[in-house]
């Protein structure tokens, strides 16, 4: 199975994602430059964290127009699994592959810490090996992770089970004190209508080895491997 890690100018978690998928997971992985027009035959696409285009204009705003995004849109349209992490989540929102937007953190501070993240839904390619209600210990590192959507969109996300991750305390409780950035409904990650595109602000790729303080992020990558294996993509 092959992972494509998209590299925009200013991406800085691309190597983390590559390391997690290639060396920890033992899968094939390849960097794909933002000017490339194909995904090099990848089965899974990761939009990594960082500061694409220096966060100029808005986070993820310029990256949505990169040449590679045409291929990413087509991949999304064909049902291919896409994971947007941190800045990758912001890019997916700007590209309209996911609804809503990420605003400046409510307290205006850049948060760099491990937080509790509750898995709300397991019916996505990136959470099928997790259990509903499972609490993951994942690092966050962002200044603009405050998820916002208009009321109608928010209600649609909630009623259709498209809120995939929420910030929580160690006991799995959703509370304002456990919400690091002011996200509506404590939202840390969502998926699209078809459920193949998932975006989240926390960094699962930085939590795949005990030496890094947590292995809880591995379940996202194990899930997509299992998902593709069961769908027969590995036979190709």
């Amino acid at each position: 199975m092959k992972f494509a890690v998209i590299v925009f100018p200013g991406s800085n978690c691309d190597h983390d994602a590559y390391h997690a998928t290639k060396h920890v997971l033992g899968q094939d992985a390849e960097f794909v430059w933002h000017k490339d027009t194909t995904l090099k035959g990848a089965d899974v696409v990761i939009l990594p964290g960082g500061f694409s285009y220096g966060d100029y204009l808005r986070t993820g705003a310029i990256a949505q127009f990169s040449p590679v995004m045409t291929a990413v849109r087509e991949f999304a349209g064909s049902g291919g699994p896409i994971l947007g992490i941190c800045n990758g989540f912001q890019v997916l929102c700007e590209a309209k592959l996911l609804p809503g937007a990420l605003l400046r953190n409510k307290d205006l501070k850049f948060h760099c810490e491990h937080v509790g993240v509750r898995v709300e839904q397991t019916s996505t390619p990136f959470t099928n090996r997790a259990s509903a209600g499972q609490v993951l210990k994942l690092p966050i590192a962002h200044g603009e992770g405050n998820y916002f959507a208009d009321q109608v969109t928010l209600e649609q996300l909630e009623s259709s089970g498209r809120v995939i991750f929420r910030y929580c305390d160690n006991g799995g409780r959703i509370a304002d004190e456990a919400n690091p950035n002011g996200s509506l409904n404590g939202i840390a990650g969502i998926c699209n209508d078809r459920r193949n595109v998932v975006g989240l602000m926390p960094h699962p790729e930085r939590a795949c080895e005990s030496a890094l303080g947590s292995e809880d992020g591995l379940v996202l990558f194990d899930s997509v491997v299992a998902s593709l294996a069961s769908s027969g993509a590995l036979m190709a």
Partner: peptide, 8 residues
Amino acid sequence: RVLANPVI
């Protein structure tokens, strides 16, 4: 298309 994000 670019300068403003109509969501926000």
